[in-house]
Design a protein around this nucleic acid. Sequence first.
DNA 1: CCTATCATGTAATCCGTTACATGATTAT
DNA 2: ATAATCATGTAACGGATTACATGATAGG
Lengths: 174, 174
Amino acid sequence: MNRKALGTSGYVVLGLALQHGEITPYELKQRIATSVGYFWAYSHPQIYVVSEKLRKAGLLSQRRERSGRRRKMYRITAAGEQVFKGWLSDPIIGHTELRDLAMLKLYFGEFSDQGTICAMARQQVAAHEARLVEYQRIPDQRQLNSFALRTVELGIEFEKMAREYWRIIERDNI
Amino acid sequence: MNRKALGTSGYVVLGLALQHGEITPYELKQRIATSVGYFWAYSHPQIYVVSEKLRKAGLLSQRRERSGRRRKMYRITAAGEQVFKGWLSDPIIGHTELRDLAMLKLYFGEFSDQGTICAMARQQVAAHEARLVEYQRIPDQRQLNSFALRTVELGIEFEKMAREYWRIIERDNI
DNA sequence: CCTATCATGTAATCCGTTACATGATTAT
DNA sequence: ATAATCATGTAACGGATTACATGATAGG
């Protein structure tokens, strides 16, 4: 209804529901953790809350398993699809936010000592390396559509850059 | 006291207070907007709330202007400095989060049309270009310590990369 | 002197996380 | 059978944004 009331997490859920037809909160959680969650994470209880909120707003319909875990199965409604597609074509406001604790601490490096910074740099090289490997494996493991693949590509480029960046920090601080 | 109770925004305020000696919430806001805020933004009412919280926790001391605007002037306490430096050497948990609406929408590109994606790509090229120019001007405008300069460097590299990325998206979608 | 904008803040609300809790299924 | 883990949620809290409000100063 009023589109303003929906946060980004709501649109993520709508989008995934649209992609998958019928989906449980758990599947949503898994999907997010291995896709959009790489660059826009959120925690699992949120997913349950958001799904319920979307259902109440009439953007998702719900069907419940009759036996076993009695899982809630969500499906996007016509209204939901309309809201989601409207959001997709809304103009982008705001810019990329690069939230990174290590960068923040580096900014205040004057109050650290060389050993601490160097250790942090080493740890960051390893962390970005690990993430790079993880991203590089994604196209082999799952068949993604070309758009999802594209976002993975940016992830890969970013990790390469960050790894190199911290290597230089490490070298300069030894 | 108990360090766990402090969020990242608290440490940002402590760090800036440590750098600047005595600082008002407004200066904090300005400083954040043109430094760490580039990669870790937050809104101005938060700064007032966080500063007060830090004062109550004994990590900042406060002096009030006697006339005019009766501004609150904050200064870091010995306890605050200790807590801040402790945080600096804490190990990093979690990874870089690259929060970007355009990337999110690109991920769901299958539900957009080419025109919309192309327009978004064009807008993103312009936005990253603008930001790049802004970052490149920073070293001339202000004298920053070498650590702050280093973080700006990553910002510049990122913007170059993102600009190039969206240029390719735009080209492929025309 | 009046207006714009600078500077400072409060209150309400919402979003997201942490901690907790529990039933269902699978492996041994 | 029993332990492990899969799957599903709730409740409480805290952090962050939005909307609102107001006094101080500067410019005309």
